[in-house]
Design a binder for these strands. Structure first.
Length: 800
RNA sequence: GCCGCGGUGGUGGAAUGGUAUACACGAAGGCCUUAAGAGCCUUUGUCUUCAAAAGACGUGAGCGUUCGAGUCGCUCCCGCGGCACCA
């Protein structure tokens, strides 16, 4: 009677034993080649979701594989522990955010340790601890020193529910990324980071040195939104007012007949002062300013505007251009002022509505091609020195001419805005600045760091920062004059925390700086970075920004922090919907483990779909994966090595090869499929593989199913040392005596033939066998033909 | 509108330009069993056919390149994701 596969019995034992044996202890001083495997640090929401497991399992498989392949693998873990949900939960449950967060970390860590990851928890980094956030403050001061952190008053995205500003990257469809509240525009004074200064450096080249998905690179480039064009200098008629407009389509400049200016533009007031239209314009501007960003966007289909009563001179020699305040002109794009023409749909519609004069400067080649379409087709007319010339061939020349004539200059316009980092909330890193009535804004001296986040505050939102409610904390002496001053009561955006955490992982207790430079030199850049697609525009962009900033400071020697980026998909509920408590379709990892064991859950998460995929949890498929492990268990229970079957041996070698390359390419699903195939063959001939071979099979399964393989390795194979420290099987040279190749007639497969290895290169001999056999013979009889032969691959007869 | 990624059986999904549908799920039939479950075996793209043999068709549509296309090129259609009155 053989033993049944009952993982619950041994999985717990191995967790304890591994801990005792220090299996997963990372040695930073090892001489082996390093491999830094990183997964985005999770937020401390409280409960470990099956999505966390999905995100971590494939990386864990890769990390284990790398360890068995002789690397010194660093696979750390930490928590993104600051942020609003903690504060909101605290308000709701009347518990302090810190206590809530730390309790959650404990729960999550306990759950995580059950899965059997090779994470070494001694390197755990928690962003809400002083030992971490003090270095946020240090980095902030460096940014401030370099002029990259500045205080600005600006119209900002404001979330009324969370009582805080939001960066553009934190807005999803006009709503707050955390709470879903509609974002409004509000003038707020706050801290910004000048990420725009790094815009050019953050643009991905076409063929980057690092391996990041095209979608991420395109998305970030899009967001940075670099546009090449010209800035045109303008003078208002009868007024001492100058302004500039941006144009990305220089060929249309001769067609422009009017000017549109954004309602919020500071020049509007000066322009309309004293005109007959002044009152009307002011009413319009006021109306526009009252609307939320979302309303503005919704209404923008209807072009609206008011004539200012003013004109601008046209540097291209056209008639004077009427200046209109228009709702479609956006303050934060270009200069906020637009030259408008008939060649743009939007400008055209507006002009038609208000009966503004238009003109065309392009003879269209294709009469059906719309007048308004952007593009560089057609022949110019009434375009100064370029009349009669083709648009597409003259764009550069037009720009040169504009520069030469001093009408304007070359200019690059960027879509990306500076990163708003201050949050008017409690649970975050205090901004290390002091406001002195006499000396103004003063940086907290480095030696006075950290500025501790006080425990005692009133963090219920009432429009002013919670930190300001702790008077003892708030009032300090000015570091410069010693007089009474106040601390900055704002906290940093949590994306600040996660923009450099992988460096802190390397030595979380390090006290001489934000991170240990020697370790960073040895272990960074990160070799592979796993995470969610939702961080394309936020987190990973900020992390790249910080990396480049650190390089400028001389702290790092590389431009990109991760050599490879892999983005995971989402595990949906069994009903195909996103898991949510309200839909009742949440899969609890703990109960899945209780039913099948960790190995099965791990294997299933790898097998169910590609890592990048998104799809539903299936109780049936996980049962199938469990069957596979049971069969593995069973074949080793009755295992006895006898003969070494040549076919099985070759199959095993091919399986090892496939699994090795699939793991490297994070294609865990096909790696598992290959092992299933091998087992199918093996079961037909259980004695056909040597002991050595069966051990190799266990080894390649080990990264996926660490428990069952260890159990068999040590208790059936009687090995002394852990399978996870064994050397990954090397490929043996295999010689197949016979190979099968398909035979085609006119490109259609009609037969397969077996040929011996030594015949492969002998085309004549292969042809002879193929032509004489089976259906092929019938097709070829009485015909003349030629052949295409790819040695060892395929033979194709083409009838002439 | 722009950018990116996709479209393959009943389902999840495999296929360095070389036997399309691996592997798994589901389904059908069988063995075992008093029975259920589990397990094992067989079948499973569509059509012609009682069946077999054989053949035709077949990777969103249509062209093209090629001895050979799911894969490469062009023109579309559809889906997903991101950005967007972007001047």
């Amino acid at each position: 009677m053989k033993n049944k596969y009952q993982p619950a019995e041994f999985e717990k034992n191995w967790l304890e034993k591994w801990k005792k044996e220090k299996l997963n202890v990372f040695d930073p001083n090892s001489d082996k080649k390093k491999y830094y495997s990183l997964v985005e640090l999770p937020y401390t929401s409280g409960d470990l979701h099956i999505g966390h497991w999905f995100a971590f399992t494939a990386p864990d498989v890769l990390s284990r594989f790398k360890r068995m392949s002789g690397f010194n693998v660093f696979f750390p873990m930490g928590y993104d522990a600051f942020g609003l949900p903690a504060e909101n939960a605290a308000i709701k449950h009347k518990i302090h955010p810190k206590d809530w967060t730390m309790k959650n970390i404990e729960t999550m860590t306990n759950q995580f340790q059950q899965v059997g990851t090779m994470i070494d928890w001694d390197w755990m980094t928690i962003t809400c601890l002083q030992e971490y956030y003090r270095w946020n403050q240090w980095i902030f001061l460096k940014l401030y020193e370099k002029g990259l952190a500045y205080r600005g008053k600006a119209m900002s995205n404001w979330c009324e529910r969370d009582q805080t500003v939001l960066a553009n990257e934190n807005i999803e469809n006009g709503r707050c990324w955390r709470c879903g509240e509609v974002v409004v525009q509000k003038e707020v004074e706050q801290w910004f980071l000048k990420i725009t200064e790094y815009a050019e450096k953050l643009i991905w080249p076409e063929n980057p040195q690092v391996d990041w998905p095209a979608a991420v690179r395109a998305g970030q480039n899009n967001w940075i939104g670099k546009k090449e064009g010209v800035l045109i200098k303008h003078k208002a008629k009868d007024l001492n007012i100058e302004f500039e407009t941006f144009s990305a389509f220089p060929a249309w400049l001769w067609a422009d007949t009017y000017i549109a200016i954004a309602p919020e533009h500071p020049l509007v007031e000066r322009l309309v002062a004293g005109t007959a239209q002044e009152k009307e314009v002011k009413i319009f501007v006021k109306k526009m300013k009252q609307k939320t960003a979302e309303q503005r966007l919704k209404e923008i289909d209807t072009k609206e505007g008011v004539f200012t009563g003013r004109y601008a001179r046209d540097p291209f020699g056209g008639e004077d251009m009427p200046i209109w305040v228009a709702n479609f002109a956006l303050m934060d794009f270009g200069t906020g002022i637009i030259r408008c023409s008939a060649h743009d749909t939007r400008d055209y519609e507006f002009a038609k509505k208000y009966k503004i004069k238009l003109k065309e400067v392009v003879d269209r080649i294709d009469p059906d091609y719309p007048i308004s379409a952007h593009g560089n087709r057609g022949v110019l007319k009434n375009s100064g020195p370029f009349a009669g010339k083709k648009v597409e061939e003259n764009i550069e020349k037009i720009v040169d001419w504009i520069v030469k004539e001093k009408i304007g200059k070359r200019h690059f316009n960027y879509h990306i805005r500076d990163w708003s980092i201050s949050r008017q909330r409690y649970w975050g890193t205090p901004v290390p600045m002091i406001h002195c009535p006499k000396d103004g804004m003063i940086a907290v001296p480095y030696e006075n760091l950290p500025v501790e986040l006080p425990y005692e505050v009133d963090f219920t939102p009432h429009g002013k920062p919670p930190l300001a409610t702790n008077a003892k904390w708030l009032h300090v002496k000015c570091p410069k004059c010693g007089g009474a001053a106040k601390r900055d009561a704002e906290t940093l955006d949590t994306f600040f925390d996660s923009a450099w955490y992988w460096l802190r992982y390397l030595n979380p207790k390090y006290e001489k700086g934000p991170f240990d430079l020697k370790r960073a030199e040895k272990f960074t850049p990160v070799d592979i970075y796993f995470g969610g697609a939702e961080h394309t525009l936020g987190h990973t962009l900020y992390a790249r920004f910080f990396t480049k900033f650190f390089k400028n400071l001389g702290l790092l020697d590389h431009d990109e922090f991760a050599l490879k980026r892999v983005q995971h998909g989402i595990v949906l509920g069994p009903d195909g919907n996103k898991m949510s408590k309200s839909k009742g379709n949440v899969i609890n990892p703990d109960s899945a483990v209780a039913e099948y064991g960790s190995d099965t859950v791990r294997l299933y998460l790898c097998f169910m779909m590609p890592y990048e995929g998104t799809g539903p949890w299936s109780d049936q498929t996980i049962a199938g994966v469990n069957r596979f492990l049971t069969r593995v268990w069973n074949i080793f229970q009755s295992y006895s090595s006898s003969s070494n079957d040549k076919k099985l041996f070759i199959k095993l070698q091919k399986t090892i090869k496939k699994v090795t390359s699939d793991i490297k390419n994070i294609k865990m699903n096909t790696a598992i499929a290959a092992m299933m195939e091998f087992l199918n063959d093996w079961e037909r001939n259980p004695g056909g593989i040597s002991k050595d071979g069966s051990k190799k099979f266990l080894q390649i399964l080990a990264p996926f199913a660490p428990f069952i393989t260890e159990e068999i390795w040590r208790n059936v194979m009687k090995e002394k040392q852990s399978i996870h420290l064994s050397d990954w099987p090397k490929l043996e040279r295999i010689i197949e005596e016979e190979i099968v190749i398909p035979v085609q007639v006119n490109g259609k497969v009609r037969n397969t033939i077996k040929i011996s290895q030594d015949m492969i290169k002998d085309q004549k001999a292969v042809e002879k066998i193929a032509a004489a056999e089976g259906k092929v013979k019938k097709y070829l009889t009485g015909k003349t033909y030629k052949t295409i032969y790819v040695p060892g691959k395929i033979l194709n007869f083409i009838l002439l």
